[in-house]
Write a protein that binds this DNA or RNA. Structure first.
Length: 104
DNA sequence: CTGTTGACCAAGG
DNA sequence: ACCTTGGCCAACA
């Protein structure tokens, strides 16, 4: 079980319409302080991946993907799920994922 | 094993 | 609000 797989498992648990930060995902995966590793792990995914990589954003709701890699795509995917933005950042106060809010 | 890279983050200016 | 700096450390060459 690599750290990367634990991270992907965690991202898999983020429900639709909800968003988490890299640092938050790292902590939830049992890897506090490894925010960068979250990014490095999501990087290996493709658009067709079952992992909802688009629900992970930088601190403060910032989109942290290079635009050539799909920054606008991420925003589109999130807006399709009903996630709202505050300027160029996700409205975290409204959509931040907390582990206790999953329906099941 | 050694050195570089990077979808981060919090402070400081 | 924007950019830079220092810390962090697994993955990669």
């Amino acid at each position: 079980m690599t750290a990367r797989e634990r991270i992907l498992e965690t991202v898999l648990r983020i429900p639709e319409g909800r968003v988490a930060t890299y640092g938050q995902v790292a902590a939830a995966a049992g890897l506090p302080g490894r925010a960068r590793l979250v990014g490095q792990s999501l990087r290996g995914l493709g658009e067709a991946s079952i992992v909802p990589w688009h629900r992970v954003v930088g601190a403060g709701g910032r989109i942290s993907i290079p635009s050539v890699g799909g920054a606008t795509l991420q925003r589109d995917l999130l807006e399709d799920e009903g996630v709202t933005f505050r300027g160029s950042r996700v409205d975290l106060e409204r959509h931040r994922w907390s582990e206790g809010r999953e329906p099941g």
